[in-house]
């Protein structure tokens, strides 16, 4: 039995995107995106490079500004109002391809910094939370090291712990395993699977189709800035409808 069955999806909307368009200069990167993500959903976004998938999830926490349409995250609309943006960012965790840990701070400080300054949590309590999540990603013994002393897989797990310390309600993953060696991909994916099992709402840009099959409840295929196809993983992989999806799948699953 697929383990997805255990994971519940509520009717509550976590991310609502309507008629969203984005341009880089005059280049139309995202075209008429409509997407609703319910709480507890695990969405995998895939597509060829340059298709706008990273830009899409970066728009969700306003790392990129959208030019038209509406994005509502956790009931708050993303506008140019900096207060709204900061509020949403502290509720939405983000993982990056290159981890983006802060190299001048220890692992523990990486995890406590935002708690102390954004959430105003006392240091002792913040450290306790940090150790809790570092234990959860299985690297509590590295707490006093600096990011440069860790392997890529460990760094990405620290990045996950750092996001979790903010107790986010939604997590975005921007190709979290693309910069990792093959043997490290698994440790990061395992951590992400655990997160999914805890009921986290996740939007994941990835080329790990095994992960998509195992964890996602919906796969979205994007090309040329638009959503071309979305379906449940089984249907998506076994019975793709559009030609572009078929071509893409044959290219990445072909070998």
């Amino acid at each position: 039995m697929n383990r997805q069955a255990k994971l519940e999806v509520s009717d509550e909307v976590a991310i609502g995107i309507q008629g969203m368009n984005k341009w880089f200069g005059s280049f139309h990167v995202l075209r008429d995106i409509d997407l609703t993500v319910n709480r507890g959903e695990r969405i995998v976004v895939c597509g060829p490079s340059g298709s706008g998938k990273s830009t899409l999830i970066r728009c969700v926490n306003a790392l990129e500004e959208h030019q038209s349409g509406q994005i509502i995250v956790d009931g708050t609309e993303l506008t140019s109002d900096i207060k709204n943006i900061d509020k949403i960012r502290s509720e939405v965790g983000m993982l990056f391809q290159h981890f983006n840990l802060f190299p001048h701070l220890t692992i523990l400080e990486n995890c406590t910094l935002a708690q102390i300054w954004v959430r105003k949590i006392p240091q002792a309590q913040a450290e306790e939370t940090a150790m809790h999540f570092l234990t959860k990603v299985k690297i509590p013994e590295q707490a006093d090291k600096y990011p440069g002393q860790l392997s890529g897989g460990q760094q990405q797990r620290v990045a996950i712990a750092r996001s979790l310390c903010m107790r986010p309600r939604i997590m975005l993953f921007d190709e979290p395993t693309s910069a990792l060696d093959p043997e490290m991909i698994k440790e990061v994916l395992d951590t992400m699977i655990e997160l999914a099992e805890d009921g986290m709402t996740m939007m994941v840009v990835t080329h790990e189709m095994g992960f998509a099959r195992q964890v996602a409840n919906r796969v979205i295929f994007m090309d040329e800035g638009q959503i071309v196809e979305q379906n449940e993983p089984e249907e998506f992989f076994n019975n793709p409808q559009s030609d572009r999806t078929k071509l893409f799948l044959s290219q990445i699953l072909g070998h």
Binding site: K87, F96, N100, V118, M166
Partner: peptide, 30 residues
């Protein structure tokens, strides 16, 4: 500094002054 540092600071909800003081300037000044 890689733009990732700015993005990571922003994505954690640090405001401009905090991200400059705690993340960007310590590294840039070094």
């Amino acid at each position: 500094l890689p733009t990732g540092q700015y993005e990571a600071a922003n994505s954690l909800g640090l405001d401009y002054a905090q991200s400059m003081r705690l993340i960007i300037l310590p590294q840039a000044l070094k």
